[in-house]
Design a protein around this nucleic acid. Structure first.
Length: 414
RNA sequence: CGGGAGAUGGUAGAGCGGUUGAAUACACCGGUCUUGAAAACCGGCGAGGGUAACACCUCCGGGGGUUCGAAUCCCCCUCUCCCGGCCA
């Protein structure tokens, strides 16, 4: 959630920032109006309530002294009769404000490049050079089937389209990658977690998936539970509605979880192969930091994710997302794209974001410093998407005879 | 899924109709003492809104009710713990 007071006092600046994300400033005007009427409605209710409270105390004293309370009671009743309507006004005003405030995206940082789509993203650097194949490199769906690693048809039979089955060496490699990622993240200071794969609506609201993106979540019937779309949700919300001692910051966490997404907005995209599935494995990093420290931690997280690919010998590049391509809660995002020789392009394999205090404000995650409570910064990033890493290994390590070599660092995990 | 108990501040734990946002202990922060630390002693210490700062409003799991007044009484829901059944 964005800071409503900030918008009030810095309207032009706020408007300029949000326009980078394609948000019209009429919505900010509306927000300001709603905020103003909430304040008025609250003042009206609280004033009447204060008077009633005062008279009720007086009533107690009268009774104690044996005084007549008849006229006093008339006064109290008069205030009391006004209260329900005033309270209802305040409630409605608050509800209207909240409904709007919760669907406004985070402010992008000032150094985020302008642009509308991924075409305007800015490459930061390339790491490792794609190797030259002396033959035409195959795509992972061919390699997966010929090597007996992936069974697409039976995945669809078990569930539906966008589900697949890993087997044999493919399944083992998936598991090896998970362990390799978790171990390497631990060395970088991230504590490992094992988490509920279903979270309730309050948590999804905290990290920003709800209320705006409900259509991309799998919901459990008759329960206030959703399958998590990323471990970012449970990891970040571990501290939902908590106040953290400043001395325990930063908190660095990592977890492997399957992730579940309806992919509602991606009809027709990546329908072939294992790039975009309803269920996929991911190892995630989440950091909770002091505001002064989040940029440093962000760089460390990007470095860590990039390092995983380097250790695997996978060529990749770092890309700074432009305003229009930035996610709902992100102030700044660096994507890491891995080279896929079969597709002859770089594809996203990690996305590292600093949400600043956007999620903290929603999830009420604060830290206490010198007796004062303030919002933390929360960051998240994949390290890495496991299935896509497997794809990258298949395509980058394929041999002319169609077999696939194993990266050196993984051999001890198999 | 059946039977019982409970849900209060960072934790433990009082309060059971009025001036109680809440005793007490521990934790925590500041000070005295000390070469330093510990101990001891003194002081502070829930959260959100509101204000220039006060005032003021809200919160004792969530929602509703009774009352001039509710953490305290009544109803519903949720969750936790213990006992039993079922089951990895």
């Amino acid at each position: 959630m964005i800071d409503l007071k900030y918008i009030q006092n810095n309207f032009d600046e706020a408007s300029r920032k949000l326009s980078k994300k394609g948000v019209d400033n009429s919505i900010l005007n509306e927000l300001n109006t709603l905020f103003q009427s909430l304040k008025e409605a609250n003042a009206a209710y609280e004033g009447a309530k204060a008077e009633q409270n005062r008279l009720s105390k007086l009533f107690g004293e009268y009774k104690q002294k044996g005084l007549d309370t008849a006229t006093l009671k008339d006064d109290i009743d008069r205030y009391k009769s006004e209260l329900p309507a005033l309270l209802e006004n305040a409630r409605v005003a608050n509800e209207k404000l909240e409904n709007l405030a919760l669907i406004i995206p985070n402010f992008p940082d000032d150094n985020v490049p302008n642009g509308l789509s991924e075409d305007d993203n800015v490459e930061i650097k390339k790491v490792l050079t794609p190797k030259e194949f002396g033959f035409e490199p195959k795509e992972h769906w061919d390699l997966g089937v010929t090597n007996g690693w992936i069974d697409f048809e039976r995945g669809v039979k078990l569930a539906k389209s966008r589900f697949s089955v890993l087997k044999g060496q493919g399944a083992k490699l998936e598991r090896a990658l998970i362990n390799f990622f978790l171990d390497t993240n631990a060395k970088a200071g991230f504590e490992e977690f094992n988490l509920p794969l279903m979270n309730n609506s309050a948590m999804l609201l905290g990290t920003g998936q709800l209320p705006k993106f409900e259509e991309d979540l799998f919901k459990i019937d008759d329960e206030d539970l959703y399958l998590i779309p990323t471990a970012e949700v449970p990891l970040t919300n571990l501290y939902n509605d908590e106040i953290i001692d400043v001395n325990s910051l930063p908190i660095l966490m990592t977890a492997y979880t399957p992730c579940f997404r309806k992919e509602a907005g991606s009809a027709g995209r990546d329908t072939r192969g294992m790039i975009r599935q309803h269920q996929f494995d991911k190892v995630e990093m989440v950091a909770i930091t002091h505001p002064d420290n989040s940029d440093k931690v962000f760089d460390m997280m990007v470095e860590n994710a990039s390092n995983l690919l380097s250790l695997l010998g996978l060529p990749h590049r770092l890309v700074m997302l432009c305003g229009g391509d930035l996610g709902f809660g992100a102030a700044k995002t660096v994507d890491i794209e891995v080279w896929l020789p079969g597709q002859n392009k770089y594809r996203e394999i990690s996305s590292i974001s600093n949400t600043r205090d956007f999620q903290a404000r929603r999830a009420k995650i604060r830290y206490k410093e010198d007796g004062k409570n303030s919002f933390v910064h929360t960051l998240n990033g994949s390290a890495l998407a496991v299935g896509r890493t497997l794809i990258a290994i298949m395509e980058n390590y394929q041999n002319e005879n169609g077999e696939i070599s194993i990266p050196e660092v993984l051999k001890s995990y198999l």
